[in-house]
């Protein structure tokens, strides 16, 4: 689908990030990554573990600080010390590999609480919206359950509803199906496909190549903290230009 607004919602320029451990060793996680995400676009980021793909995703809502470079989200430069990071984050939804639902709150409360705390919605409005969204992700019948009483797939649905409740302009998915049983993976991927079809802008780190082929507008292949190759799914799968991309795809397909 062609982006309606030509200006990308997220721009990353030469983003560098080094992890330093206590024993003085350092590990280059991102060695100068530049990428853009257009409005309405679905970007899939893939690559071997340790390639920096999750780190990259987490810099986009400033969950990870960066050493140098520039990240602009919807016109706001987030590496600027004066940036209102809380406001920015409320506009960028994030879904985690391990769901990270608030363990002491029910499914419904998980979706209600952020609306009240961050968006200052009234309790009744937040509850109504939460039921709508839990219904949308197909889990409203479990609204009163605690996360520990839900399966992984159900928890991830609640987590997606929670992120959507903030009315995000873009959603980041950090390996959303990697911790799920194989039979529940499809359900979550279908839900994400549905979101994409509704026009949600998405950046997805995933190993699900069939899914990527189906919904991605563009794909990034990362290795050793760098973007090795970028292109449409057709190009990436059928005529990968880089040797490293070919090698990786051969291993996982």
């Amino acid at each position: 689908m062609p982006p309606s607004d030509p200006k990308p919602i997220i721009i990353a320029e030469s983003v560098r990030k080094t992890y330093r451990s206590n024993d003085g060793r350092s590990h280059l996680a991102l060695g100068g990554v530049s990428a853009e995400i257009g409005r309405g676009e679905v970007l899939v980021v893939f690559g071997p573990s340790g390639s920096g793909k999750s780190t990259f995703l987490r810099t986009l809502n400033a969950l990870e600080s960066i050493d140098s470079g520039r990240i602009v989200v919807d016109g706001v430069e987030i590496s600027d010390p004066g940036a209102d990071l809380n406001k920015l984050r409320s506009e960028v939804g994030m879904v985690f590999q391990l769901f990270n639902l608030f363990q002491h709150r029910t499914a419904l409360d998980n979706v209600v609480l952020p609306q009240i705390v961050v968006h200052r919605r009234s309790k009744s409005e937040a509850v109504r919206r939460a039921h709508d969204l839990l219904g949308k992700v197909g889990i409203d019948d479990r609204a009163g359950h605690y996360p520990s009483q839900l399966s992984g797939g159900q928890q991830q649905r609640v987590a997606i509803a929670r992120a959507l409740a903030m009315d995000p302009k873009v959603m980041l998915f950090d390996e959303p199906t990697s911790a799920l049983d194989p039979e529940t993976v499809t359900g979550i991927l279908d839900l994400m496909t549905e979101l994409a079809a509704e026009g949600m802008t998405m950046a997805v780190v995933t190993h699900e190549m069939g899914f990527a082929r189906e919904i991605a507008n563009r794909m990034l292949f990362m290795d050793s903290g760098l973007i090795v190759e970028e292109g449409s799914p057709q190009q990436i799968f059928q005529m990968p230009r880089q040797e490293r991309t070919k090698e990786f795809l051969k291993q996982i397909l």
């Binding site: 809502n61 969950l63 984050r89 409320s90 506009e91 608030f102 961050v118």
Partner: peptide, 8 residues
Amino acid sequence: EAATALGF
């Protein structure tokens, strides 16, 4: 992380 990402 989840709460931070939500804007808390």
